[in-house]
Design a binder for these strands. Structure first.
Length: 660
DNA sequence: TATAGCCGATTTTTT
DNA sequence: ATCGGCTATA
């Protein structure tokens, strides 16, 4: 028996024991939000609710697995059978089953972002909007997809998205609308779904098929949603529909930690929740169990200056601690060296590497630090930034697997064809036209096959493939053999890329169906550095480098935050826009509240990255990148709450091994 | 029609 | 520094 009363504070206990009806839990940073969800799962199961009647929607699959694992440890294994995952993975699961009802085959392909961009480009070309005069500033494929995606996720029309966020493209409203329509039709014809479609069609399914809605709502009698501040309109609608039979919904979030508006998330979902679910009870978790008082004093002050928020002030019983430190380093490399030096000292004092993290706004901010850490032999894992599956050679292999799974996937056929020797844009177009538009499939004209042996080889492999009967591990092996020569022909640095292919093969080997493998590669792709570390077995003994976004929900004994400078945090791209700056503030808040005992903020005095950045940062000359972030300047926060240091050069070159 | 080589624009964050 | 896209050449 779990003693809930003893192990939870009154507010947490209330959240755990309130199982019927709608609840909104406002959970400040470090207030035991995860703990509350974990205990609530255990509580429900202990009370006799069947695990598969519970649905736990989280931001990453990792988060849900971790929570269910902890619940299982608390109670028993039944908790691991609770349905959990991201909105997208849940949507995928449901849609595979009910695809027919919304006019898709169940083997639809989930396109990643760059495939989606390629599809947009194809549509653009088809509409005759391909070759525009450069001076006319027609949006490129990435911007086009952004606009389309925003309009979908915010349930707004193209016109309002343009007016609000992309005024520079307003003159192209009609063209963009046509591209959006074309893109929707294109995906449908090719059985493709992008990330947004998973949500769009899940909503459509629940909305238009009341028998499905009733069945799913009856199945998931207790629904919990984590990180609710980072859901968008579509997701809120989905929750509403899923709960239609019972209203047993608990959403948990913190408006001050909303950092995904670029993806259409809107923390007003939290504020609107009591309106959408009438009679919802609000529970506030305000006691912080994570950070020391000096750290909280700083973070409370930063968020106090925010424009809009639920009023709340976190307090802690954890007691005194060291004041947060601000370090003005001479340049980027001194910034890195300072971190290294401090890490070595901490390790010397008995702090474990896995309890230390360095956080930053953008993936590339850690470039210099990574080199410095490697030089000292300090192991680290990097989260966020450029992804493994985005690398061109990985995408090449995945394109073969995607074709095998969905032969109508024109985007990936095109990619595969363009890799073949002697085939370019025109030929590739002709071949996909034959195969897909004329529905000849693999029955390609003999003449073409004769002329292009690379194509003949691939067709041979594909003919032998029956996806249901092949394990991804075995499938990929054949493709790798075929791909070998093409890799060498295309990339000068093929020897650097080859090991990645083996990693991919190893990952594929863990899956028992092609579909689940491809789904995961699209929805939960592995991090590059994690893979590499996995090979060396270094997981347990490594520090963390992470973008602030990827650090959400986590905590460390010591947190370094680098590049706390104007232009970096806040990012220069946010400077024109008041709302964007507010989001940067919340990012700063999320970063700083990850720290339990030590918080160290740094910034270089001279910033060489500014030299090339200033070229396209509009009116912001390079100089702004050397100013202390505004979030520390407001109300003299820096002076009032921090200890200030300066760091020049002259660090001892102590090796990591000397310390342990 | 394919491809190499050049030029210029671009870089936040992620399901 | 890197990528996408365009041009000149084979």
């Amino acid at each position: 028996m779990i003693n809930y009363k003893k192990e939870l504070n009154p507010a947490q206990l209330k959240a755990v024991e309130s199982t019927e009806g709608p609840y909104l839990v406002i959970a400040g940073a470090g207030s035991g939000k995860t703990r509350t969800l974990v205990y609530r799962v255990a509580y429900l199961v202990e009370k006799g609710v069947k695990p598969d009647h519970i649905l736990l929607l989280t931001f990453t699959r990792k988060a849900s697995q971790e929570m269910l694992r902890r619940a299982a440890k608390l109670l028993d294994d039944r908790c691991e059978r609770v349905a959990g995952g991201t909105f997208h993975s849940f949507a995928n699961m449901v849609l595979r089953k009910y695809a027919k009802l919304i006019g898709f085959p169940s083997n639809f392909t989930i396109t990643d972002e760059s495939d989606a961009e390629d599809a947009v480009n194809i549509v653009r070309e088809k509409l005759g909007l391909g070759h525009m005069d450069r001076s006319k500033h027609f949006p490129r494929k990435g911007a086009l997809l952004d606009v389309i995606s925003k309009s979908v996720n915010k349930s707004q029309d193209i016109g309002s998205v343009l007016a609000l966020e992309y005024p520079q493209f307003s003159e192209w409203e009609e063209e963009i609308k046509r591209i959006k329509e074309g893109y929707i039709k294109y995906k449908h014809a090719k059985s493709l779904m992008d990330y947004d479609d998973l949500l769009v069609f899940l909503k459509k399914l629940l909305h238009e098929h009341k028998e499905v809605r009733a069945r799913l709502s009856g199945q998931y009698k207790y629904i919990m949603v984590d990180e609710y501040q980072d859901t968008n309109k579509l997701q809120a609608d989905i929750v509403r529909l899923l709960a239609s039979e019972h209203d047993n919904v608990m959403v948990v979030g913190d408006d001050s930690q909303s950092i995904y508006s670029f993806r259409g998330a809107n923390f007003k979902n939290i504020i609107d929740f009591p309106k959408v679910f009438k009679g919802a009870t609000v529970i506030m978790l305000e006691e912080n169990y994570r950070s020391t008082q000096p750290i909280l004093d700083l973070t409370n002050e930063v968020i106090k200056n925010a424009d809009e928020k639920f009023e709340k002030t976190l307090f802690t019983n954890k007691g005194a601690g060291k004041a947060p430190i601000f370090v003005e380093a001479r340049d980027e490399n001194v910034q890195s060296k300072y971190v290294v030096q401090k890490v070595l000292e901490l390790v010397d004092d008995g702090v474990m590497l896995k309890d230390i993290a360095v956080l930053f706004r953008a993936g590339w901010h850690s470039n210099d630090l990574e080199i410095e850490l490697a030089n000292h032999g300090i192991p680290f894992l990097k989260y966020g930034g450029q992804r493994f599956v985005e690398a061109a050679h990985i995408k090449d292999i995945l394109s073969y697997l995607r074709i095998a799974h969905n032969p109508a996937d024109q985007v990936n056929w095109h990619r595969a064809l363009m890799l073949m020797r002697g085939i370019g844009e025109k030929t590739a177009g002709r071949i996909t036209e034959q195969m897909i538009d004329k529905k000849q499939g693999l029955d390609i004209d003999e003449g073409i096959l004769k002329k292009h042996p690379d194509l003949a080889d691939l067709v041979d492999i594909l003919r032998g493939v029956k996806p249901q009967e092949h394990l991804p591990g075995a499938l990929i092996k054949g493709f790798l053999e075929y791909y070998g020569p093409l890799l060498k022909a295309k990339y000068d640095d093929y020897h650097k890329r080859a090991p990645d292919l083996n990693s991919l093969e190893r990952i594929a080997g863990r899956y028992k169906s092609l579909e689940s493998f491809l789904t995961d590669m699209a929805l939960e792709p592995p991090e590059k550095s994690i893979l590499e570390a996995g090979l060396k077995g270094k997981h347990d003994h490594a520090m963390t480098l992470s973008t602030i976004h990827s650090a959400k929900g986590l905590e460390w004994h010591t947190v370094f935050l680098i590049y706390v400078a104007e232009g970096h945090l806040p990012s220069y791209q946010a400077m024109e826009d008041k709302d964007a700056i507010e989001e940067e503030r919340r990012l700063f808040y999320v970063a700083a509240t990850r720290a339990k005992d030590n918080l160290i903020l740094l910034k270089p005095a001279i910033d060489r990255s500014a030299r090339w950045m200033k070229n396209y940062s509009g009116g912001y000359a390079g100089s702004i990148f050397t100013e202390v972030s505004r979030f520390l300047q407001e109300g003299s926060i820096l002076e009032r709450f921090m200890e200030v240091e300066k760091a020049g050069g002259g660090f001892d070159d102590v090796e990591f091994e000397d310390v342990i």
